[in-house]
């Protein structure tokens, strides 16, 4: 952007078509997926493929049944499928992503009238539904394969189940500390797309540079979680391991790729900052005191529900109206 354009929000980017935006976002998600498949083996690739295909199929089926225009080309169902798969453990039975994608598209999106009308992030709706319905599968994680040789062996690899770093922390037994660098590279148990922070950052920076997302939501979100866990996360105040909290769980994936969803987040900058802080607080509170080890998906969904209210009180009023 060479010219400085002064305008009042909401800033609408008319030049970009919806479908182009969607496919760019989809492209930015690729590194994290590749990293996930590399870390956990081929089973995670199947999860991603199945999730995407069922999301597309559900979308098409509903649009045919309700006699609307079939709009698979806009890429939104594709992204929903990918994001849902990224939020699943790598070794789930393959019917799980099918059910999750159907639910995400049907209940998360189509009942509201399709793309642009949904109140909640569809992928997250699918995820929390699966989490509440089949907690057994949703909380069974496998160890990362040894990088390099792992990928080749993964065809007949016997997965070793284990707990995620955050789940270990919750149980209070955090004996074998995973180093920050391992967390950063993704060498830890977790969901397919959330583990490799560096790959997620590559995608996020790409979106920043291209101007598809702004810093307001992700940065306030991550900072708030960091500060809150630093203050309350340890024994005594200001002793929490905030780096660990930022690097583990689905925080980075959620902050950059799900909280920033145009449709379900506030329009104004002020609203986006409130949204980010709200997400951050809720995530930290659930992590520290809630029953689940990770709270990012719930936090974003709760703030999705609050988005219309935030918009209502932060939108610039047209002069002379109430």
């Amino acid at each position: 952007m060479n010219k400085l354009i002064v305008s009042s929000s909401p800033h609408l980017h008319n030049k970009e078509s919806v479908s182009k935006t969607m496919w760019v976002v989809a492209a930015s998600l690729v590194p994290a997926g590749v990293a996930g498949v590399f870390i956990f083996g081929l089973s995670s690739l199947w999860v991603i493929i199945v999730a995407v295909i069922s999301a597309l199929a559900t979308e098409a089926l509903i649009q045919v049944l309700t006699k609307r225009k079939v709009s698979l080309i806009d890429g939104s169902a594709f992204i929903t499928g990918i994001l849902l798969a990224y939020n699943l453990p790598p070794d789930v039975p393959l019917w799980l992503p099918v059910v999750g994608s159907c639910f995400a598209i049907a209940i998360g999106k189509q009942v509201f009238g399709g793309l642009g009308h949904n109140i909640f992030n569809p992928a997250l709706v699918g995820r929390v539904f699966l989490m509440a319905s089949w907690p057994k599968y949703m909380t069974t994680f496998i160890q990362p394969l040894n990088a390099g040789v792992g990928f080749v062996q993964s065809m007949n690899y016997d997965a070793v189940t284990c707990a995620t770093p955050l789940a270990l922390l919750k149980e209070g037994k955090f004996a074998e500390q995973i180093s920050y660098i391992n967390l950063f590279l993704g060498n830890r148990p977790g969901c397919i797309g959330e583990v490799c922070i560096v790959a997620l950052l590559v995608g996020a920076i790409f979106l920043f540079i291209k101007g598809y997302i702004s810093w307001h939501i992700p940065i306030t979100y991550i900072l708030t979680t960091g500060v809150f866990t630093w203050i309350f996360g340890g024994k005594g105040l200001f002793a929490g391991d905030w780096i660990f909290h930022i690097l583990s769980g689905g925080l980075v994936l959620g902050a950059f790729f799900m909280a920033t969803d145009y449709v379900t987040s506030p329009l104004t900058r002020k609203g986006q900052i409130i949204f980010g802080i709200g997400c951050g607080l809720l995530t930290a509170v659930i992590r520290l005191w809630g029953g689940y080890p990770e709270g990012a998906s719930y936090a974003i969904l709760m703030m999705n529900a609050a988005t219309p209210i935030i918009d209502r009180y932060t939108l610039n009023r047209i002069y002379g109206t109430k």
């Binding site: 109140i119 929390v128 029953g291």
Partner: peptide, 18 residues
């Protein structure tokens, strides 16, 4: 249906212990 999704989101607080 919206209430149902909200209720799902609020389940995040399940097992809250201070």
């Amino acid at each position: 249906i919206i209430a149902s999704i909200m209720s799902l989101a609020f389940m995040g607080f399940n097992g809250f212990k201070f």
